[in-house]
Write a protein that binds this DNA or RNA. Structure first.
Length: 306
DNA sequence: AGCGGTCAAGTTGAT
DNA sequence: ATCAACTTGACCGCT
C-alpha cells in the first residue's frame, strides 16, 4: 500500500480553473511607478486567492503537498520593477490572504514547498548572480513563512569545470542567507552536473536535506543504487523527507530522456519508496490529473507495477 | 476572439 | 553558433 506516501502537485493545474497570473517587466516599464504598483497589486491579490483555492483543491483531492510557483508575487525581486508587499495598494489584503493560506495549511496538515527557478545559482563565480539569487531566496523565504511552507528547494548550480571548487562556493553563498532561509533550503540532485553522491557530503556538512530526484538520478547515475541513495537521503531530513518523481517523455531509451511525460508510469515509482513516510512531488505535465492517476494506479494494485 | 511575438535572470549540452 | 531544457506558458498588442 502507499498510504503513508504524501503526493505533491507542482505549481499548476490543467483541468481545475485555478490560474496564477504574471506580468512582463517590459510591459510594466512603460507605465508610471504608481501604475506598476497598481497592476502588481492586482496580480498579487489574484494569486494569493488562487493559492488558497489551490490548497483547498489539493486537500479535497487527497493531494498532500503543493509546490508554489516562484512568480506567486510576480517580478518581486526585479531590479527595476521589484517591490515590497507593503508598497502595494492592497498589500495588507494580499498578506492577509497569504496568512489565511497558512492557517489552512496548519489546520489540514497540507504541506507546501517552493522551488526557485534556474536563475538562482548560489555557486556562480559572478557576484551579481549570487546577489540576485540571495534576494530571490529571501523573498521566497518570506512567502514560505506566511504560508507555512517548510522547503525551498534549489540545485547546487553550475560545475564550471571544477565541481569541488564550485561546491565550496556554494557554501559561501549559503552562509550569506538569513538563518530563516537557511533553515528552509534543500538541495536537489540534477540531471547534468550534481549527483546524490556529489551532494550528500555537502548536505551533511551544512545540515541541508537532500531532495532525492530519482528521475535525475536515472539520467545522471553515480554508482549509488536507488536503494542506497534513498537510504542516504532519508537521514539528511529533520522534517518529512521530500523526493521527486517523473517519467521521461520518450521512454528510457534514446533521446528525450530529460523531458517530462504527461503522466507517471507506475513502473517508475521506486519499490524502495513503497513503505516510507515521505512526500513525493510529481513532476508531470498533466499536473493534478497525473497525481490523481498515479495515486489510483498505485493503490488499485496495492503495489507498484514492476 | 484568435494569433504570433515576446518575456529578468544562468548554465549546460544537443544540434 | 544557436537553442532547448529546466518546476511552468502567459501576456500583450495586433488583426
Amino acid at each position: 500500500m502507499t498510504s503513508k506516501i504524501r503526493f505533491g502537485l507542482c505549481c499548476l493545474f490543467v483541468e481545475q480553473p485555478i490560474k496564477f497570473r504574471t506580468a512582463t517587466a517590459t510591459h510594466l516599464l512603460k507605465k508610471s511607478r504608481s501604475e506598476q504598483l497598481e497592476k502588481l497589486s492586482e496580480l498579487a491579490g489574484d494569486n494569493s486567492k488562487a493559492l488558497l483555492a489551490a490548497f483547498k483543491y489539493c486537500h479535497a483531492a487527497g493531494i498532500g503537498c503543493f509546490r508554489i510557483n516562484s512568480q506567486i508575487l510576480p517580478l518581486k525581486t526585479h531590479p527595476v520593477v521589484g517591490y515590497s508587499v507593503s508598497e502595494l495598494p492592497d498589500g495588507a489584503a494580499v498578506m492577509a490572504t497569504f496568512k489565511e493560506c497558512g492557517r489552512f495549511l496548519k489546520k489540514t496538515g497540507l504541506r507546501a514547498s517552493l522551488h526557485p527557478d534556474q536563475f538562482v545559482v548560489l555557486n556562480s563565480p559572478r557576484p551579481e548572480v549570487v546577489a540576485s539569487s540571495l534576494a530571490e531566496i529571501e523573498y521566497q523565504a518570506e512567502v514560505a513563512e506566511w504560508v507555512g511552507a517548510d522547503v525551498i528547494n534549489i540545485h547546487a548550480g553550475g560545475g564550471y569545470g571544477d565541481k569541488t571548487a564550485a561546491l565550496a562556493r556554494f557554501k559561501d553563498g549559503f552562509a550569506r542567507l538569513s538563518a530563516a532561509a537557511q533553515g528552509l533550503i534543500t538541495l536537489e540532485n540534477d540531471d547534468k552536473t550534481y549527483t546524490p553522491a556529489d551532494l550528500l557530503p555537502l548536505c551533511r556538512e551544512l545540515d541541508v536535506p537532500l531532495v532525492y530526484d530519482v528521475h535525475h538520478h536515472r539520467v545522471l547515475p553515480d554508482g549509488l543504487s536507488i536503494a542506497a541513495a534513498t537510504a542516504a537521503a532519508l537521514p539528511t531530513w529533520n522534517r518529512e523527507p521530500l523526493f521527486h518523481l517523473s517519467s521521461p517523455l520518450t521512454g528510457w531509451k534514446g533521446s528525450g530522456l530529460h523531458r517530462h511525460h504527461d503522466y507517471i508510469d507506475p513502473a517508475d515509482f521506486p519499490v524502495e519508496w513503497r513503505d516510507l513516510r515521505v512526500t513525493v512531488e510529481v513532476e508531470a505535465k498533466a499536473k493534478e490529473l497525473a497525481v490523481k492517476k498515479l495515486m489510483r494506479d498505485l493503490s488499485d494494485s496495492g503495489r507498484p507495477v514492476s
